Simulated assay, not measured.
Amino acid sequence: LNQLLSGCPAHNPESTGKSSSEDIIIYMETAGSSGLRKTVMLSQKRWLLMGQQFTMLTNMNQNSIIYLVIPFFYNMGFNICFSSMLAAGASMVIKPRFSLSNFWPDIRRYKVTHFMAVGEMLRYLCNQPEEADDLDNPLEYIV
């Protein structure tokens, strides 16, 4: 990365001074589960606030590691996991999909402290047979 950045200017571009926390950071489409899909605009300020709130809720800090197995185009992926990671200065393990067989080995391998689940993930985890080392993991929060 340093090699790629070596030719870039060190100062902020002029457009930086024109940005505001009221500017829209993302347009997301709702799932439409309670009617037609709707586009939702999210300001930078609101996005950062969501990250800070989630960070406080789960005691996330710079030593925290988030395990992300959902795409960034989902609300939980971008608006909760990514914003809270930045707000806390934490790290993130990004996997392309949820894998029941890799879940606990990944949690231990990457020393994951936070996991954000959606849909049936928790039911699948709870229905697994008990293992002797189930409690031997660094996971602090599952949301």
Results as ranks from 00 to 15, higher is better:
Phe98Pro: 01
Phe78His: 10
Leu36Trp: 05
Asn61Thr: 07
Gln44Leu: 13
Ile66Cys: 04
Val93Ser: 09
Pro13Phe: 00
Met60Ser: 14
Ser91Trp: 12
His11Trp: 07
Asn63Pro: 00
Ser19Val: 12
Asn79Asp: 05
Ser99Asp: 07
Cys8Ser: 08
Ser20Trp: 06
Ile70Thr: 11
Trp47Pro: 07
Ala10Gly: 03
Phe54Ser: 06
Thr55Ile: 04
Thr55Glu: 11
Ser19Cys: 15
Ile26Asn: 02
Ile94Phe: 07
Ser91Asp: 07
Glu22Arg: 04
Gly77Tyr: 03
Asn79Trp: 00
Ser19Leu: 15
Met92Leu: 10
Asn59His: 11
Phe54Lys: 03
Gly77Ser: 05
Gly17Val: 06
Ser43Tyr: 00
Leu57Cys: 01
Ile26Thr: 08
Ala88Asp: 09
Pro13Gln: 04
Asn75Ser: 15
Ile94Leu: 15
Pro96Lys: 09
Leu57Arg: 09
Val40Pro: 01
Phe82Gln: 05
Pro9Phe: 00
Ser91Cys: 07
Gln52Ile: 13
Ile24Met: 03
Cys8Trp: 01
Gly51Thr: 03
Gln44Phe: 14
Ser91Lys: 12
Ser84Gly: 00
Ile94Gly: 05
Ile65Gly: 00
Gln52Asn: 11
Asp23His: 12
Leu86His: 04
Asn61Gln: 08
Glu22Trp: 02
Met60Phe: 13
Val93Phe: 15
Gln52Trp: 15
Lys95Leu: 11
Thr16Asn: 14
Tyr74Ser: 06
Ile66Arg: 01
Met60Leu: 09
Pro9Asn: 09
Trp47Gln: 01
Gly51His: 08
Leu57Glu: 08
Gly89Ser: 05
Lys38Leu: 02
Arg97Pro: 00
Leu57Asp: 05
Gly17Met: 09
Phe73Asn: 05
Ala10Gln: 10
Phe54Asn: 08
Glu14Ser: 15
Asp23Phe: 00
Ser43Asn: 02
Leu48His: 13
Pro13Lys: 08
Pro13Asn: 08
Cys81Trp: 03
Met60Asn: 11
Asn12Asp: 14
Gln62Leu: 13
Ser64Glu: 08
Phe98Arg: 03
Gly17Gln: 08
Ile66Pro: 00
Leu49Pro: 01
Thr30Lys: 12
Glu22Pro: 05
Thr16Gln: 10
Ser15Thr: 13
Asp23Gln: 09
